[in-house]
């Protein structure tokens, strides 16, 4: 899976990763994939929940130690 855009939110706490994801996903095209990197542990649950509310397609979250990499496909 190759993301069209990568957003680095490491070091940021809730709700900043979600807010940044919202502003960045507006800049990509429908069907594109955005990769969001964060290290807030709550992000693991927050990203799928955000996708459920907004209607974007949640693809997966990869855990690399403390770093979480989330992938979302824009609706």
């Amino acid at each position: 899976m190759k993301p069209n855009k990568t957003l680095d939110c490491t070091g940021l706490f809730c709700p900043m990763p979600i807010i940044n994801a919202k502003t960045e996903i507006e800049k990509i095209n429908s069907g594109d994939i955005i990769e969001i990197i964060a290290d807030d542990p709550g992000f693991e649950k927050d990203l799928p929940a955000w996708c459920k509310v907004t209607g974007h397609q949640f693809l997966e979250i990869k855990k690399e130690g403390a770093v979480l990499k989330g992938y979302v496909k824009k609706k």
Binding site: C14, P15, I18, I19, A21, K22, W50, V53, T54
Partner: peptide, 12 residues
Amino acid sequence: FILATTAASSNM
């Protein structure tokens, strides 16, 4: 404000 901004980021 955390709740308000999070909800606003979810198209509310």
